[in-house]
Amino acid sequence: MSGTAGAVTVDCPSDIAIECFKVPGYRYVSYDNSGTTPCGVSQINGTVTGICAQPNVRVTSWLINGRNVLPEPTVDGWDNCAISFLNDFATTLNTWDPFAGNWRVVQSETCAYHVRSRAMPPTGTQYGRLTATNLDTGDTLTFDPITVTVPDQYYRRIVEVQCDGSVGERWTDASGAVVPAPPMDQLVTCTAEIVPGAQSVPTQRLRPRIKRFTGTASSDNFDLLQNVQTVTLRVVTGPVRVRAAGIGPSTPTAWEDDTNVPTGTVLTWGVANDSHAQLDGSLIFTGAAAASDFIVNWTETLHTDGD
């Protein structure tokens, strides 16, 4: 401060307000049954290896926050491999998770299909090893998770008065270095407790796919392809049999919708581009004659947040 006998003036420039903001971070926990991957580690009798087709299993423990959350060993069946195995495994986790991790099968470029939690705050519930016994072979099966964490990013907005009386602001990061203003639509106050969204942007993107079929060939069942958002059928030469039925996750025992469509037909199934929903229900296309010719294109969600 400086002044004279009758007046006091403020040193300038001068900070008159400091506010704390953050871009909330997030955390994903994932399990995989493919040996060692960036999405989890599976072992049989202590040897790292892929695990699938375990129809007679007793889950003996699942450590969460360092404690076993199973009230008693429980019998489960993981009957198949690949996505079917992971669907069963996710059901096991959702059944016994007291903290509602919302486990589901997702796809990423690093691990293809695996089981992952919803997005969670950077700190909190700590998921650990799941142990099971194969009752047919006596093998001990273990699954260890991988956690991908993006921490909260802290910023301070400092309002300052210049010597000419004008008011401005500057932003600093957690270290105090001056930085450009962060994206305002992502900021919350530092004291706010935010639960991240289930799909944190920009940790996902849509991949376009296309495939042509001729004769009596069949497409995959799109209910078994995870994270599909749109599917379009174009019949170059018909007829093409379309079977659509039920609600997943497994193939229904009977098809509710089953019809042949003619040459020139274009059919599309999909969800809104800005929606995090995905198609759910069996969908198969099959050439109904030797001369049938059709094209199927679809989009699938890929997760690129390191899991």
Rank of each mutant, 00 (worst) to 15 (best):
Y155R: 03
V178I: 15
V261R: 00
W298Q: 07
D307A: 12
M184P: 01
D220S: 12
C20A: 01
S108E: 04
G248Q: 08
V75C: 01
L206P: 03
R58D: 07
E160G: 05
D173W: 02
D139Q: 14
T216F: 08
V296L: 07
P71V: 10
A119V: 05
Y155I: 10
V188M: 03
A272N: 13
Q204T: 13
V195K: 11
D144N: 10
T131F: 02
P180A: 13
T37E: 02
I284Y: 13
Q153Y: 07
P183I: 11
Q162A: 09
P98S: 04
L135G: 02
M1A: 09
T268M: 07
V271I: 15
T216M: 13
D164V: 10
C190A: 03
R243G: 10
G248Y: 03
T253I: 15
G176H: 01
D293P: 05
T232N: 12
P249N: 12
G165M: 09
V296R: 04
P121T: 01
W103M: 06
V8W: 12
N65F: 00
R241Y: 01
E169K: 05
S200N: 15
T251R: 15
V159N: 10
R241N: 15
A90S: 15
I44C: 06
T125A: 03
N134R: 05
L225T: 11
R116Q: 15
F99Y: 14
